[in-house]
Write a protein that binds this DNA or RNA. Structure first.
Length: 424
DNA sequence: TCTCCGATTAGAC
DNA sequence: CTAACGGTCTAATCGGAGA
């Protein structure tokens, strides 16, 4: 029997994605050390190479970096998701021309299946070049027989300038593979995070080779099935499938930390009405409805000297719905039940769960009522699609101020808003 | 003892 | 000037309740 033909999965990953999106429209920032901040301008979520070199850590709270930032003139910007989502779509569309089988894995990554294609190196360089030429986005490509090894190869491509942005694990000899894995810390393996790195170390597993060669029953017993899959993927046995069509969400969460503390019930309800609108719009976009709605509130858990309160309450709905108005009534009700004065709220959110596809229920006495509601929400979605999110609102939805997140340094929506296009 | 369920944990990005 | 630390999602596992 012929040996099983090996997969060639190419993981295409944008370099410093958010930073790169900003630089495409601000070429003057090309060499400026810079970072992009999370919602509420809280933590660093993307760093330029210069910022990395200065020691700024991924996920680090911005206020902790301030001193270093001032010293070295590090520029911080708020995140601009409308811009990043649009740039991502452009990149993904280009990549989809290179293979009929792709998985958009995240906003800045795509697994492109090149199995069976000739000249995989050339194709990889071509992907890099076309994306760069058409969008300005720098990307690196890692090729491997499994997702885990494609990730690993991408890591190598990023780290070693000599690779010129493309690294093919499949082209290595066994000795080269062993050598590579031996020099790769186990925490750089996909699926191995901080906690597992520590526990693995106590078993003498510190690099990727150790993990690949570890005693299988021990590994399975101590670390469970997830780790075993990772190990098998390192051994070139695919355990994680390519998921071409994204699965429907099983739960939808919409929540925010507030820009400042909130003490008033109406303000909380206003914030929640915005979260409900977002969550229900997502629900309708995947043609589903939810049977359970949960609301949570929270004080600032980092301010230990203040009284803490983080309640959470759920209701099973009498029948599944995706109607923003209806969900909002429940959200307001739950919020009122939990609200206690004299606390400073810093966060609130809503979760929709027990999600199932909408199917046309026959013979329902309320069918006509449901149909009308359905039309109302459809009209609302269409208007918001045409005139921008929030053009048509549910309830107060943002009428009160005080909870909106801090975004002090956001760039214009260069690609998605005519109002933001600079007139030369 | 088995099963179900909610809560917790760990990870990715 | 001040205060100042994200948001979403999944899968696996754990521990208790109930059958």
């Amino acid at each position: 029997m012929l040996p099983k033909s090996q997969q060639a999965l190419a993981l295409v990953h944008c370099n410093n994605f958010y930073v790169s999106c900003e630089r495409i429209f601000r070429p003057d920032l090309a060499r400026v050390p810079m970072v992009i901040l999370s919602n509420n301008d809280g933590c660093v979520v993307s760093r330029s190479n210069e910022a990395k070199a200065l020691g700024i850590k991924m996920g680090q709270p911005w206020f902790e970096c301030k001193e270093l930032a001032e010293e070295h003139g590090i520029l911080a910007m708020s995140s601009n998701y409308a811009l990043y989502a649009d740039m991502s779509n452009r990149v993904m569309t280009i990549l989809s021309d290179f293979s009929p089988q792709c998985e958009v894995y995240s906003i800045d990554e795509n697994f492109v299946d090149l199995t069976g294609m000739p000249k995989i190196r050339e194709v990889s360089y071509a992907m890099r070049e076309r994306v760069g030429m058409w969008t300005g986005m720098p990307v690196c490509v890692g090729i491997g027989p499994t997702k885990t090894l494609a990730k690993l190869a991408n890591h190598v491509a990023k780290k070693h300038p000599r690779s010129k942005g493309v690294f093919n694990y499949n082209a290595l000899t066994n000795v080269q593979k062993t050598n590579l894995l031996q020099h790769l810390p186990v925490e750089d393996v996909w699926g191995v995070g901080r906690k597992l790195t520590k526990r693995l170390a106590s078993f003498g597993v510190t690099n990727a080779l150790d993990l690949r060669e570890a005693h299988i029953p021990t590994l399975r017993a101590e670390f469970g099935v997830v780790m075993e899959k990772t190990q098998r993927e390192l051994q070139e046995t695919p355990c994680i499938k390519l998921e071409e069509v994204p699965a429907d969400k099983k739960q939808i969460v919409s929540s925010r930390s507030f820009g400042s503390m909130v003490t008033e019930l109406p303000v909380l309800k206003d914030a929640l009405s915005t979260f409900v609108a977002n969550a229900c719009a997502k629900l309708r976009a995947q043609k589903s409805h939810a049977s359970v709605i949960q609301v949570f509130l929270g004080t600032n858990r980092f301010r230990k000297e203040l009284p803490q309160y983080a309640p959470c309450l759920a209701v099973p709905l009498p029948y599944p719905t995706n109607d923003s108005l209806e969900v909002n009534r429940w959200a307001a009700f739950l919020c009122e039940r939990m609200f206690k004065p004299d606390y400073q709220y810093k966060r609130a959110g809503i979760m929709l769960s027990e999600i199932s596809p909408v199917t046309h229920s026959q013979g329902d006495l309320l069918e006509a009522v449901h149909a009308d509601k359905h039309k109302l929400m459809e009209a609302l979605d269409n208007l918001n699609a045409r005139y921008g999110r929030g053009a048509v609102k549910v309830s107060t939805q943002g009428a009160y101020s005080g909870w909106q997140m801090k975004q002090e340094r956001k760039s214009p929506n260069y690609t998605t808003s005519w109002d933001d296009v600079p007139l030369v």
